[in-house]
Simulated assay, not measured.
Amino acid sequence: MSMRRSWLASALALVIASAAQSAPDQRRGEQVYARCMACHALAYDRVAPRHCSLLGRRAGSVPGFAYSQAMKSSRITWDEKTLDWFLARPMKAVPGTTMTYDGVPDAKDRADLIAYLRHANDSAECRSLGPSHR
């Protein structure tokens, strides 16, 4: 009986460790976001549109930003699933996009990045915009 408990305890520890490793890590996602900062920022438009309030926003809808016709016509609403799909291969996902970055091929990197973006609205940078501009 003791051997069985030991085996079960070991198996449970392995499952917990595996789940912890696979759970999205927003801190690591912030490091992945550094790749995006050549064109994007959280709270203001650069070469590419801002990311505050990205989740739930329609693609191509930040007022005043000059999107490609492909992005404006994409009918995408950004959520975790559409971001994951788009970030894997942006130019294939939306042919004609002006985004020239080849994407984030690693699924764990994308999950971490999306976790970071999900929590970005809680940042001082995004809060400073006020609710109507996020």
Rank of each mutant, 00 (worst) to 15 (best):
T98V: 12
G130L: 01
S74K: 05
A43I: 08
A59D: 01
R27Y: 14
M37R: 14
A70S: 06
R46D: 10
H133K: 12
R27Q: 15
W78R: 11
L113W: 09
A23E: 11
M3E: 11
L129Y: 05
K92L: 10
H133A: 14
D122P: 09
A43W: 01
R28T: 07
L42F: 03
R89A: 13
R27T: 15
M37C: 05
G56T: 03
Y33L: 11
D84P: 00
G56P: 04
R134L: 07
S22R: 12
S22L: 13
F65G: 04
G96F: 01
Y44H: 11
M99H: 07
Y33E: 04
L8T: 15
D45K: 02
S61L: 00
Y67C: 08
V32F: 00
Q21F: 10
Q26S: 15
A13E: 02
T77P: 02
D122R: 03
A19N: 03
F65P: 03
G29I: 05
A70F: 06
T77M: 09
R118P: 06
N121K: 05
Y116F: 15
H133Y: 12
L117C: 08
M71C: 13
T82M: 08
R127Y: 00
R5W: 09
K72L: 08
D109I: 07
T77V: 12
T77N: 08
A120G: 05
S73Y: 02
Y44S: 10
A38K: 13
Y44T: 10
R89I: 07
D84L: 01
S73F: 02
P90K: 02
R46K: 15
S132W: 09
H133D: 11
N121V: 10
A124L: 12
H51T: 15
H51K: 14
I114Y: 03
P95D: 07
M71S: 13
H133P: 03
Q26R: 12
R27E: 15
R50M: 13
R110P: 00
R75A: 13
S73L: 09
K92I: 13
A20Y: 10
A11L: 15
A17K: 03
D109E: 15
M37K: 06
S6T: 12
M71W: 11
